[in-house]
Design a protein around this nucleic acid. Structure first.
Lengths: 338, 338
DNA sequence: GCGTGGCGGGAAAGCGCTTTCCAGCGCTGC
DNA sequence: GCAGCGCTGGAAAGCGCTTTCCCGCCACGC
């Protein structure tokens, strides 16, 4: 086993041409190669089953065909949708995506970036949410600098990081619009299941929601914080229930959290939407089919991944670009008139 | 911008040692290096922000730190769970996972494998399902050979491919056990929402299910085939409904299909489980929280990913190993007595 | 005293490519 | 008729690392 790999040199020799010529034929260069030599090379490469050594190419060209993708948790539909968008674009561009997962540990983000830098990835999209953790942020910023310094591009999804391309969803606007829509249903008392307080995404959505309530002259909501996960939503909802809040409508800052919250409500015999309306944010596909279907703010997640990948792969200018994508309020069966 | 990357040579020079010494210090070799030299190298590496060039290392060592992961669709919870398991193990081993998606096109699998081979990935886990498509299969087999030939290891999830390590779920046994459990609920007439007929996974589950019905002396089910997706399940269910079948219980060979099917049933006013019981297969996490919760055969998906990654990374012998994981029938609210 | 080993350090030969530079050659233009 | 040009092919110099080999040094043992 372990028969050595066919090298360019072997192909060249077999075809009776120089290394340079073989290289030019097999990996499009600006230079022309005459038809018959070219044919011969192509044919022997085929016969020998030649596959170029990507590491060697990367080394010689000083650039690789790797694109990094950093997410917190690939099982979270929010991230897997974005991942699908990113991989689609990357694969179309003939690139290969390397997936890094942080498990929501802020320091992992910087570590992964460093690894990606070691691999001379040509670009990376960071889909993890920004935290307000000072230390982790500055370490990350340093890594981002080092990465771009080295010629790589980085784009962030859902977090405005200085100096990088960004696709930012209308978190604040979405939260606000949702609040308005919900107040129009007649609700007067709201609760919010917020994410960890250091997550900027969570804060923005919450801030927008509060602003929306304020627009409608409604009192600020009760806020219960929980982890950005299904279980976080479950626990936050339990806590809310225990607090004897009089809210008739609850906004979970994430669909995934809403899912956990709904489970908690059901478990406690709270009927949705009869006893309590609930809305989320993201519009992850699986929750469109649940009963009741979840009201939410739709974000074009796959498209966001595509945009991010596009930003990071199209060469781009020196200016950091920002693409805003709007969230669209979708009221479904989980919210009722009050 | 694009300040050149710090190289080992620069570190060595700055620290006043030879390239060899620097290399030995920074990338553990069998050779010893005296304490003070070692310190000096470490310190200057730190100061200069040295990060080894992974491509160069791969080239010099003739082995990379890449692990491939091939799935059909990363947004499908089935695959994203497996992916989570694989990445966890890989990252713990200090490796980097490259994610390839086939979009369910059989030929992409071979293409991706070839790309992975170009990158000299040290291993790859194939989570796509095996088809009976002759051409694609033999092309894939050739790529697998080439890959292992070159020293890489490959493991498959859920498909026994000759000569590779495999983790195979008890598809047949699971289907059979499920059939038994459902007949015990009193159902007599069954329908199956099968996957595309060329998918081996789908066929195995179906075959097991039929065997289970047979065990109980029940007539074979009506089978409607559909795509292995939510929409496939939706359409298959619609077709089933249109066929005026008298089935009181339907088995979707995949949870994801069951999800679509439930949506279809609901849309047609069929109450679950009162009018129709439904069960799936896989036990994807999101469907545990739906109403009604889906009866299914639980597969430890993340664990399967971990096992596959483990098989492929632990060196392993020459023998192809097979790890069987059992499915466990979990009856929930979507199935009722009849 | 000198030969033997063992050990830490460095020089240098690759790893498989890309790309620059040069050589040769057939043309064109004056 | 010849300088000059454009074009194709090849030799060879890297790319940044690992690893083999060799050398000098020291501690021993006889």
């Amino acid at each position: 086993m372990s028969a050595r790999q066919v090298t360019l040199a072997e192909v060249a020799k077999q075809a009776g041409v120089s290394l340079a010529t073989a290289s030019r034929v097999l990996n499009g260069s600006t230079r022309q190669v005459s038809g018959d030599l070219s044919d011969r090379v192509l044919r022997t490469a085929e016969e020998l089953g030649y596959v170029p050594n990507a590491s060697a190419q990367a080394l010689a060209r000083n650039s690789s065909s790797l694109v990094g993708l950093v997410v917190h948790d690939i099982t979270d539909p929010y991230f897997s949708c974005i991942a699908a968008g990113v991989t689609r674009v990357a694969e179309e561009a003939g690139l290969v995506v390397v997936l890094g997962t942080t498990g929501r540990r802020p320091e992992r983000e910087a570590e992964l970036l460093s690894t990606l830098r070691a691999h001379r990835a040509r670009a990376v999209v960071l889909a993890g949410s920004r935290t307000t953790d000072r230390a982790a942020q500055s370490r990350l910023a340093a890594e981002i600098d080092a990465f771009t310094e080295q010629g790589g591009r980085v784009a962030c999804v859902s977090q405005a990081k200085l100096g990088t391309d960004t696709v930012v969803p209308g978190n604040r606007a979405g939260g606000r619009a949702l609040a308005r829509a919900l107040t129009e249903l007649g609700h007067k008392k709201f609760a919010v299941l917020g994410g960890p307080s250091e997550l900027v995404v969570a804060r923005d959505r919450l801030a927008g929601f509060k602003a929306g309530l304020n627009d409608a002259g409604i009192a600020p909501p009760v806020v219960v914080n929980g982890a950005f996960t299904r279980d976080g939503g479950y626990e936050a909802a339990m806590e809310l229930l225990a607090s004897k809040s009089r809210a008739t409508c609850v906004f979970a800052v994430t669909d995934v959290m809403a899912m956990g919250a709904m489970a908690a409500l059901r478990e406690r015999g709270v009927r949705i939407p009869d006893d309590m309306s609930i809305a989320g944010f993201d519009d992850i596909p699986t929750l469109r089919d649940t009963v009741p279907a979840l009201s939410t703010v739709r974000l074009p997640l796959e498209e966001m991944g595509e945009i991010a990948a596009g930003l990071v792969l199209d060469g781009g200018g020196d200016e950091a670009r920002t693409v805003r994508v709007a969230g669209e309020v979708v009221l479904r069966a989980s919210t009722a008139h009050n």
